[in-house]
């Protein structure tokens, strides 16, 4: 009898925990969803009086109306994706060689190089953006797309170097030696053996840099505004005057994040399984 009661108490406690976790976790998300479809919502009603997809239509460029204070987010979305793609391309071109070097060679002063790549994670980046703005203003990069790309690359390279070097390090050096021993030059070995084996990790790194660029706020805020309006910038300015429109943008931005969460878990598992061969 005693143990059944104990188990019941434990079950109840666990249920309370589950409900609390779900409420806290999903409450804000639900609030965002409600706001994105609320066409009329007056205090103190628990739910919107009138719901509809008016703001979604407006934001996605399906209807154009000046009445509700929302514009199409498509230009901003397109700009964000373009910036992210360029950022990924340049970042990967820089980080793949660097990650490879850090994983395969004993670099003298390697500690110092590592330090340089770790600093941005350890210290606030805001002062750096502030001073980049000063430099940009002097050389005419302030408020330009290239200026924003450079800032996004800063964020991307730091993570990219870590992921790529860990990826290359996980490839047993014997596999490369074996290729050399059957007659492959260093270049062919890299191209035919190292790169295919590193592909899942490099892809993860590229996706990560892409997502980071899509989401980047602080750097773009300083060096891009008011001329470069990426999606996060648009969300920021909309949240000042139109709750519904801002919520729509926030939900759109949620999509890549959730996709990334799924992908990361898939990729990691694939890597785990594939790395055993």
């Amino acid at each position: 009898m005693h143990s059944t009661r104990k188990r019941l108490i434990r079950l109840t406690m666990e249920l309370v925990l589950l409900v609390t976790v779900l409420l806290v976790l999903l409450g804000p998300v639900l609030s965002l969803v409600l706001w994105s479809i609320a066409e009329t919502w007056y205090w103190p009603h628990a739910l919107p009086q009138q719901i509809g997809l008016q703001y979604w239509h407006q934001a996605l460029g399906i209807h154009v109306s000046l009445a509700i204070g929302a514009v199409s987010i498509l230009p901003a979305l397109l700009l964000s994706i373009s910036i992210a793609l360029v950022t990924v391309l340049i970042s990967m071109a820089i980080t793949i060689p660097a990650g490879y070097a850090l994983s395969k060679y004993r670099v003298p002063l390697g500690g110092l190089v590592l330090f340089l790549f770790l600093m941005p994670n350890a210290f606030p980046q805001m002062p750096v953006f502030v001073n980049l703005l000063r430099i940009y203003t002097r050389i005419g990069l302030a408020g330009t797309v290239p200026g924003v790309v450079i800032v996004h690359m800063l964020v991307g390279i730091v993570f990219g170097v870590w992921i790529t070097s860990a990826t290359f390090k996980s490839i047993p050096p014997g596999l490369q030696d074996a290729a050399r021993s059957v007659g492959a030059t260093k270049l062919i070995t890299f191209w035919r053996i190292t790169l295919p084996l590193a592909a899942p990790g490099l892809l993860a790194s590229a996706v990560f840099v892409f997502i980071k660029s899509l989401e980047e706020f602080t750097g773009t805020f300083f060096v891009g505004l008011p001329f470069v309006t990426t999606l996060p910038m648009m969300l920021y300015s909309a949240s000042g005057y139109n709750m519904q429109f801002a919520s729509v943008i926030a939900l759109v931005m949620l999509v890549p994040s959730v996709l990334f969460m799924v992908l990361v878990q898939k990729l990691l598992r694939a890597e785990y399984v594939g790395g055993m061969g």
């Binding site: 290729a179 030059t185 061969g277």
Partner: peptide, 27 residues
């Protein structure tokens, strides 16, 4: 190494995991 014409068998075999047996031999 690639120009020595010396064949090598490695301790942990070092078979390329992304290639089939045939491709490992044909490479």
């Amino acid at each position: 190494p690639e120009r020595r014409g010396i064949g090598m068998v490695f301790q942990n075999y070092a078979l390329w995991p992304h290639m089939t047996v045939y491709k490992n031999l044909a490479f």
